[in-house]
Design a protein around this nucleic acid. Structure first.
Length: 422
RNA sequence: GUGCCUGUAGCUCAAUGGCAGAGUGCUUCACUGUGGAUGAAGAUGUUGAGGGUUCGACCCCCUCCAGGCACCCCA
């Protein structure tokens, strides 16, 4: 055991069971994306460090990106996020692309941080972006894509909500609460950490920014104000459109949503479980000028990203993660004995020609062992053909779930099996 | 990068300084033409690694490694 080489810290092995879940999850992401006409794209996993230098959170690149020299000595970065790559891809073809773009992607990302619940060093992320529209309709549409995904994986609105806010609204609110202009950034960061810090420590930090007690109180008051959104024409319109799109049951206003990344300029949102047991499931927002940072002409957009780790934990907690192996469509053809080997393999071949997925026994074993093998792999149907059946031109079709079996003529076999595994 | 906790059979865990165990899983058999049950038998450990204390260490101490949780940051 000690001699098995360990996997790299923070990485995960996907055994067939986990791989089946991953594929299932990707399928739901694809369904939600394509329901709104988004098309898939991808960029390289290796990028130059300069791509991230202009933007992203400072720490994300400096502290958390995997950076290593290639054989020529140039620094290479394993992408920690997709948005800069997207910005570059759009900037490169800005004059030929048809806007607004509706693009989605799914792929691996790497961040060098201590693994913990919901956080690994290698993870997968679903990215959805709508670029080239500054309309609140675009923001609402992205929220609707996220909500549609939640609906497609059967997550209930009472369990997970998309919490929405607007950075410009918060900026104004900070002003009217008396937060000095040069302290707003720090104030917003503190709001972001509100539930991480003990209440008294939080108060102290706010006062440390130079706010008075009454200003602290007015900040706290506005963070409790569930109706603050009504002061923002952007959000008033957003919630109206969200309602028209039929996903309002998944969407709530929350003045405490700020989001970390520096490039968000307007609407911001994230999905949280309502019990507050898990980290943010997805996060996103409106960016006013993403493309400009990598050398293109300024273009607004809106996008969100969802990691595979937290959503999997949430789905598991609610018993919604598909845990069935994708073997249920497979037919197992037993080999009764050595004399029957040729006939059994021929039968399997014939069934494959009919479009079925067929596994055969590789060595002669007792029938009991063969059936146990098929059962443990999750196969649903098995064929038993011994000398008795063979002489009549028939075979036993066994349903491994119900343990029932039926004698069927070889010609009707494929049809019977398809019916059983469907 | 900081702090706390945990490493014992494939898995879940017990043994608190005195002979390393249980449940489950696994293998075989009862069952020479039928798998989830039942019964019987069997196999499996450098107690994460290295060092120290002790007559004696899974247990106490040190170092390292790995994992978990929280902070930081964020999907």
């Amino acid at each position: 055991m000690n001699e098995i080489i360990r996997s790299v810290k923070g990485t995960r092995d996907f055994y067939p069971e986990e791989m089946a879940q991953r594929q299932w999850l990707i399928g739901k992401m694809r369904d939600a994306s394509t329901a709104f006409g988004f098309t898939q794209y991808d960029g390289p996993c290796l990028e130059s460090i300069e791509l991230y230098a202009a933007k992203s959170g400072e720490e994300l690149v400096r502290e958390q990106a995997f950076v290593f020299p290639d054989r020529g000595g140039d620094p290479i970065t394993l992408r920690p996020e997709l948005t800069p790559t997207l910005a570059r891809m759009v900037a490169q073809k800005q004059n030929e692309l048809v806007f607004p773009l509706r693009w989605w992607s799914f792929g691996p990302f790497w961040r060098y941080e201590r693994p913990q619940k919901g956080r690994t060093r290698e993870f997968f992320q679903w990215n959805v972006d709508l670029i080239g529209s500054d309309s609140v309709l675009a923001d609402a549409e992205l929220i609707a894509v996220a909500a549609t995904f939640l609906r497609m994986v059967s997550i209930q609105p009472q369990d997970v909500q998309l919490l929405v806010n607007d950075r410009q609204l918060m900026d104004q609110a900070m002003t009217s609460a008396g937060v000095p202009a040069d302290k707003k950034g720090e104030m917003l960061r503190l709001i972001d950490r509100l539930d991480k810090l003990p209440a008294d420590v939080w108060d102290e930090k706010v006062l440390g920014l130079g706010l008075s007690l009454s200003q602290l109180d007015s900040v706290k008051a506005l963070l409790q104000n569930k109706h603050l959104w009504q002061e923002s024409s952007n959000l008033r319109q957003l919630f109206e459109v969200v309602e028209s799109l039929g996903v309002h049951e998944y969407v709530t206003y929350d003045p405490r949503i700020i989001r970390g990344l520096d490039y968000y300029t307007g609407t911001v949102f994230e999905a949280r479980d309502t019990k507050g047991e898990f980290r943010a499931i997805l996060g996103g927002g409106h960016y006013g000028n993403l493309i400009g940072d990598v050398g293109g002409k300024p273009l607004p957009g809106v996008g969100f990203a969802m990691g595979d780790v937290v959503i999997s934990l949430v789905l598991e907690a609610y018993g919604l993660l598909k845990d069935e192996l994708s073997n249920t469509g497979t037919v197992f053809v037993t080999v009764f004995n050595e004399e029957m080997l040729a006939q059994s393999l021929q039968l399997a071949s014939k069934l494959r020609a009919e479009g079925l997925q067929v596994v055969t026994q590789t060595e002669p074993e007792k029938l009991a062992k063969q059936l146990k093998f098929a059962d443990r792999l999750g196969y649903k149907a098995a064929i038993v053909m011994g000398p008795d059946e063979e002489s009549q031109g028939m075979a036993q079709v066994k349903n491994l779930r119900t343990r029932e079996q039926e004698l069927v003529t070889l010609n009707a076999l494929a049809e019977k099996l398809k019916q059983m595994i469907s």
